[in-house]
Each structure stands twice: as C-alpha cells, then as structure tokens.
Design a protein around this nucleic acid. Structure first.
Length: 359
DNA sequence: AACAACATCAACCGCAGGCAG
DNA sequence: TCTGCCTGCGGTTGATGTTGT
C-alpha cells in the first residue's frame, strides 16, 4: 500500500512500498550521480520520496553489493556470536557480514535465530539455567567457543577466563586459515574445515609496530570473487564469503592490511565502476551482477532481488579502518568495545606462540 | 477451497549524534 | 552556544506470503 503525505513544500511524498519505476529512478540516479545528500537525491531523481526513504531503499535493497538469499549456517553462527558480543548493534554486526544489511540481520534475528535459540534452550535447558533472561545463544554459543562469558543487562559480554579465551583465539586462528593461501606468508597454516567461529575480535593481528590489523575473516569484501576477477590490488580485508568457501583457491596473502569496509561508503573498485558505468540499462546492471553470481537464487521479482554474491564483493575499499571502526587503525589506546577490554585481548594474544602476534 | 494463524521482511518512526552556519 | 539539517541506528509496524486446519 502506498500512502502519501505532504512535506514542507506542500508537495506530496509517497510512502510505503517502492514501485519498480521508483527503484529504477533511484538506481539510475545513483549510478550516474553517486551518493550525496539524500534529500537532494530524492528531489533530483524525480522521486516523491523523502531522502530518508531513498537512503533506506538504496542501502537495504537496491545497492548492488547486497547478497540476497537465505543466510548460510556459517553466517548464522557468526551472527549469533557477534550478537553475543555486540548485542543489538545490528549495523556493527552487518559491517562484519559483507553483503548483508543491518535490517536484514535484524529481521533474521528476530524471526529465525531468536526462535531457534529459544527452542535450543528449551530442549537443553536445565532447572539451573532455564530461567536465564539471556535471550540468545550466549550460553549455547560459548559451549562452542569454549569461552566463559557473562553479560550485563545490555547483553554485552565479558570475557572472564583467559584460558578459555585462548581457546577461543585458537579456534578462530584455525578457521581463519581456511581461506589462506598456500603461498601466503602467513604464519597460520592450519587447514581446518570445521567452521567453528571463534571470537571475531581475535582476528586482529599485529605487525611489528604495534599496528593491529585484521588477519582475515569476517571483515572486508575484497577478494570474494577471486575466481572471476583479477586481484591485482592489495588485499583489503578478509572475506567472510571466501572463508565459507572451503574449495576456493586462494590468491591472497594474509599479511596485507585488512580493514573493515565502511558499508555506507560508495568507494568502489575501478573495475566495478567501469561495469556499472558501462551498463546501459538497469537490466545490464543486473546481468553484470549476475556475472559474478553463483546464481543460487531463483527469486526474480524485483530489481537485484535475485542476485546472490553480488558484484561489490570484490570491492576494494581504500578506507583504512580496523575491524571495530577505529579510524586510527591500531593505535594502542583504551580500545573498548562495549565492556570489552581490547588491550586485555591483545595481551592475551601474546600468549599464542603459534600466532605471530606480538604486542 | 476457505479461513486463521503464523512467519517474513520492507519500510516507517523517533531518536541521537555530527556538523555547518 | 544555539539552531537546523542530515545521517545513521534500532525498534516497531503492517503488508504479504506460507502453512496448517
């Protein structure tokens, strides 16, 4: 249902579901002009929508880098774990899941995960823990993680046990290398196909200058399409999608800078920009997207909705931010994520002889 | 086939923070 | 410092689709 309301200028503004025509207008505008002030975009694109609505539509639905389709088990695991750490900070969780939006994850959590975890808890609950107010998998999850955690009222987790924390780190290090190259100079060479997600924070590695960087994993898009695209650029970020792909041949080293791509950024790889700019129609754009797809998805009812593993997975983000969005990229300060003691984490990392971490 | 109940998800709303004037 | 605008976030709503009876 589409409603209308008057804006400040007295002109009518549409609300409700977007029509294909509106989508096309917005896509065309975004392709040709790029992002800018959303209220201007709404006006200039000839849309009777508020800027906010345009932004939402673009970010949650029309962006070509969105990975549509069902969440994989690995993504679900990661969401559960990230949620146990970050709580309902959907945007931060989404930032670690390339191609997924906060809205999508939020919906997925509220509709699917929550229920599943509740069922899990019910089936495994004992009188001692069944009354826990913890809404999610924190307990369950940490069985997997081998990490003893507690949470405050906000669901923010505290790591209490150094020993288990180390296990946590180790688990992750083993997973991480799933996507590592046989030619990589990384010091982590364990090949481990069981996707047990350790703590994503543990994926922060350290070069020789107290310069913390992501080792690989959940953050970053670059490299997802290694089979399709030349990766002549340095590897900016691990890739969750690749990490999930056990069979992928790896062309990337691990020692490169790894950074969290700002999801809202319009920074794109040159190649992608060419692709998009050369697209003469929306259909062209869609087909270009499909070019990079695995085409697992048959849903075809709206712009880009059918695309899976889409083009921006090969994004080359030039912004250097670390996993947590700390712009200083590794300055050792009082880095805290919620109640998380980042420094403490880094101290913990130093216990790992097998990881090339030094603090 | 018809209806109800439930599930999913796109989109809206309100708020907070950043920033420029 | 104040104000207004813009953006981003998280919670919520409601339309639509699916499943069960």
């Amino acid at each position: 249902m589409v409603k209308e309301k008057s804006n400040n200028n007295g002109s009518k503004q549409r609300k409700g579901l977007w029509s294909p025509e509106e989508d096309e207008k917005l896509i065309r505008y975004m392709i040709t002009k790029g992002e800018g002030c959303w209220s201007d975009i709404a006006r200039n694109a000839g849309l009777q929508r508020c800027g906010k609505s345009c932004r939402l539509r673009w970010i949650n639905y029309l962006r070509p880098d969105l990975k549509r389709g069902a969440f994989s088990l690995q993504e679900e695991d990661l969401i559960i774990h990230l949620h146990s750490i970050l709580g309902n900070r959907w945007s931060q969780i989404a930032a670690r899941l390339p191609g997924r939006t906060d809205n999508e994850i939020k919906n997925f959590w509220n509709s699917t995960v929550k229920k599943r975890l509740k069922l899990n808890n019910n089936s495994t609950s004992s009188p001692n823990n069944s009354d826990s107010s913890e809404p999610n998998s924190i307990r369950d999850n940490n069985v997997v993680m081998g990490t003893t955690t507690t949470s405050n009222n906000n669901g923010i987790m505290h790591i209490n046990d150094h020993h288990h924390h180390h296990q946590d780190l180790m688990t992750m290090s083993m997973c991480m290398d799933n996507s590592s190259s046989s030619t990589s100079s990384s010091t982590m060479h364990t090949h481990h196909h069981a996707m047990v997600f350790g703590d994503p924070f543990s994926m922060v590695t350290n070069n020789n200058n107290n310069h913390y960087e992501m080792a690989t994993g959940v953050a970053g898009f670059h490299g997802a399409m290694a089979g399709d695209l030349p990766l002549e650029n340095s590897f900016h970020g691990g890739d969750y999608g690749r990490m999930l792909d056990e069979e992928s041949t790896d062309k990337m080293g691990l020692e490169s800078d790894l950074s969290l791509p700002p999801l809202e950024s319009s920074i794109r790889s040159t190649e992608e920009i060419i692709i998009i700019n050369n697209a003469s129609s929306i259909d062209d754009m869609k087909s270009h997207n499909n070019h990079f797809n695995n085409n697992n998805n048959t849903n075809n009812d709206s712009c880009f909705k059918n695309t899976d593993n889409q083009v921006l997975n090969n994004n080359n983000y030039s912004n250097e931010e670390d996993l947590f969005g700390f712009g200083n990229h590794g300055q050792v300060e009082n880095l805290r994520m919620g109640e998380w003691d980042f420094e403490g984490l880094m101290q913990d990392i130093s216990y790992f002889p097998s990881l090339d971490f030094q603090v």
